[in-house]
Computed example of a mutant assay.
Amino acid sequence: MRETVEVPWFSSPDDVAARLSATGYLTDPATATTAYLAGALEKPLLVEGPAGVGKTELAKAVARATGADLVRLQCYEGLDEARALYEWNYKKQLLRIQASQGHDTSWAETHDDIFTDEFLLTRPLLTAIRRDEPTVLLIDEVDKTDVEVEGLLLEVLSDFQVTIPELGTVTAVRRPFVVLTSNASRELSEALKRRCLYLHLDYPDAEREREIVLSQVPELEALVAEQLVATVGRLRDLELKKAPSIAESVDWARTLVALEIRELDDKAVDDTLGVVLKHASDQERAVRELRLRK
């Protein structure tokens, strides 16, 4: 049987920057270096920062750039092992038990029969562990889970293995590229952090954001791009419920192109503000602070 030779995720930080850029994701040196090390060292990457700075998109870009499949665990309050790891198909097991009644079958034989792969429902963590193909595992918004869920992650992220009492320990044949994202709504445990490389992403500076916007919306005029980025920067300086994300900057750019707006004056901002600010109170503050209406 021919042995499969694993290809490294990336050959260098420069390779990361070039390949992610080709997918439309622009990186800075710190991001490129940390992403390279996550693949080279086979260590999970914890990415923290405010909402909308590209944390989730980084995992998606790695998957696109490497041709890997993306397996995503969306975290939320109340997430448990059954939704994150695995559960048994109880209905199917019950049907098998009922079908075996009347036959000369011992309970031990029936038990062994119903706790097999046929009855196992794999969830994102176990799915990523069991895959032979290149896989990017995205554990998104891990700070939204209960603290107890971190204990579940420790075994997976320490040894890339999962223990199923009825089946034994399942160890990854090929370690996935793991990205955990956090909006820092709560402090994560030191035990979890120790198992990860760390990257903090913040809103880009004006020049980088202009590059991002123009890479995504090349038909936007350069002057309008500069005005848009400057206005988004001013909005982020306000005390808003939700500051504009990079994705919303891009959406705004597409809106301006669609409306054939060639100058982002006060009227244009006022008319399209709902694209970037999604709370009425934020819009009112922006109008007041930026003095859009006379």
Rank of each mutant, 00 (worst) to 15 (best):
A51Y: 07
R123I: 06
L235S: 13
E209M: 08
T110C: 07
R293T: 14
R262A: 02
V287G: 00
D132A: 14
F10Y: 10
R19Y: 01
T56C: 06
L199H: 05
L153I: 07
Q161C: 14
F160E: 13
W252N: 06
Y76D: 02
E133W: 04
V62D: 02
A191E: 14
L223H: 13
E166N: 03
T23V: 13
I212W: 09
T34K: 08
P8L: 14
G39I: 07
D69S: 07
K193V: 03
Y86W: 10
E260L: 00
V7A: 10
T4Q: 11
E57G: 05
A65R: 07
V257D: 04
R236D: 11
S245N: 03
G233T: 13
K278D: 15
D205E: 12
L277P: 11
L290H: 13
V250W: 04
A59Y: 01
T181V: 11
L85S: 10
V275Q: 08
R293I: 14
V62Q: 00
E77M: 09
D146S: 13
L138K: 01
L167C: 07
H111A: 12
Y25Q: 07
D28N: 15
Q227K: 13
E87S: 05
R186P: 09
K278F: 03
G54F: 00
V275W: 01
L277A: 14
A99Q: 14
V224F: 12
D237W: 08
G233A: 06
E248Q: 08
L167Q: 09
V16K: 11
E81R: 10
E284S: 15
R234Y: 03
L41Y: 13
W88F: 02
V213P: 05
A32W: 02
T231Y: 13
H111L: 13
E221Y: 00
T272V: 14
L180W: 02
Q216E: 12
Q98K: 10
Y86C: 00
K242Y: 11
L126R: 02
Q93G: 01
L240T: 12
A30V: 09
E221L: 03
T27C: 15
Y90P: 00
R234L: 12
T31L: 08
N89E: 05
V156K: 06
Q93T: 03
D69H: 09
L167G: 04
D205P: 09
W252L: 15
T181Y: 10
A38F: 03
D202Y: 03
E118F: 00
